[in-house]
């Protein structure tokens, strides 16, 4: 059966499909060994938005004398949460790739506390997805870091099919 979108004002969101949503929630990190290495955990997902968290671990420290987590950890969680926000904005499943990413570091993350990262895909064109995100601990308005990124859509034909999900 072919599906026709008759309502021009509304568009399809991949994650409106409960099967896809469950896959994102339960299986997202199955394909991302690095997310497991760092201990990234799923928090939430909704249309065009996502949130992840990373509990504090000594192995993630960048400064040996203070124990503060390394800036590279922030890059990883931002790239992951940004990619997830793009998925949450896509109409159908397709491969995406990070084109560029900028992180501004506002203050060091407090030791022993989890870091949350939330992101929003605020613009989706035919080829590019634009994302902004924030990393924080207690208050989203008092961020550890902010981030902007651009992702390329349909970056690989190998996995750009919805066949497996029909």
């Amino acid at each position: 059966m072919t599906e026709q979108i008759t309502d021009i004002g509304s568009r399809k969101y991949l994650i409106d499909d409960p099967k896809i949503l469950n896959m994102m929630v339960d299986g997202f990190f199955g394909n991302i060994p690095h997310a497991n290495t760092l201990g990234i955990e799923f928090v939430s997902i909704e249309r065009s938005k996502s949130c992840l968290k990373i509990p504090y671990k000594k192995e993630l420290a960048g400064n040996p004398s203070t124990g503060t987590i390394h800036g590279g950890v922030i890059i990883s969680i931002m790239d992951s949460v940004g990619g997830m926000a793009v998925f949450a904005a896509l109409p159908a499943i397709e491969a995406i790739a990070t084109l560029d990413l900028r992180v501004d570091y506002m203050k060091p993350a407090a030791i022993g506390k989890a870091v949350y990262a939330s992101a929003e895909c605020y613009k989706l064109t035919n080829t590019i997805a634009f994302v902004r995100g924030v990393a924080y601990q207690d208050d989203e308005n008092d961020p550890v870091a902010t981030c902007t990124a651009a992702f390329m859509r349909a970056s690989s034909h190998a996995v750009a099919t919805t066949e497996g999900f029909k």
Partner: peptide
């Protein structure tokens, strides 16, 4: 293997490449 970000391609996680480069700069 633990630095992989996409098992389908497969590819190293963008955050690992970024973190590696940032650490190199420090």
């Amino acid at each position: 293997q633990k630095n992989i970000g996409n098992t389908m391609l497969p590819a190293i996680h963008g955050g690992v490449i970024g973190g590696f480069m940032e650490n190199a700069a420090v």
